[in-house]
Amino acid sequence: MLTIQNLHVSVEGCPILQGLNLEVKAGEVHALMGPNGAGKSTLAAVLAGKEGYEITEGEVLFEGRDISELSPEERSHAGIFLAFQYPVEIPGVSMIQFLRAALNAHRAAKQQEPLDTAELMALLREKAALLKLDPAFLSRSVNEGFSGGERKRAEIFQMAVLEPKLCILDETDSGLDIDALKIVSDAVNALRSPTRAFLLITHYYRLLQYIRPDVVHILVEGRIMRSGGPELAVELEEKGYEALLSTA
């Protein structure tokens, strides 16, 4: 599904990713771990098409198609979803308005008719229940006045509504208490399917206790230094980055 080859990315002339290679197949869950400044969020931003990130070398293929020239909305229509580490507030736009616009844009890209209000509301209520969100939440402005945990749940709620093929979760576990982490993890696990892949960016092993990954990668200084099964995360938890990488 996702193939990244020798990816080099700079931000304002400063190299961040320096020859990153990654292969994610449909149905797989990959965890990407690494110390602060390793380039984890840069990779997420590049995949989502955020501005300000310059690919200087290498390529990113999604379902065999080079996505480097696609706009963020085209990537979304193709099936890429980024759950933001710091979701922005959008005062004046309710979650209903926002997701109506997003869903109908996706449907328009597939030459489908827009959803009517009853269909939309039924879908939103069903997905809100998955995240144990109060239906009143749908009438609130996007992320405005949300707690950190509510914002992260709102991101996963949007993911559940849009049903992307590739879900990138950028430190979704940060700021979540244990109960919220369990709700979010249950929702992610419910969305796992043979046609969908996940890239979980995280600092903490505890998320991987709830969402069991197929592959764990250690990203350091813009390159993947080690990859392995779930046991790699356990080893990392025990030893830390420095000791783990010195024994590699």
Binding site: E73, S76, Q97
Partner: peptide, 18 residues
């Protein structure tokens, strides 16, 4: 804000109007 809306599939001009 624009980027956020666009990553959810909303085209640039629609995002600006919203």
């Amino acid at each position: 804000m624009l980027t956020y809306l666009r990553t959810r599939g909303i085209p640039l001009e629609d995002a600006r109007k919203i």
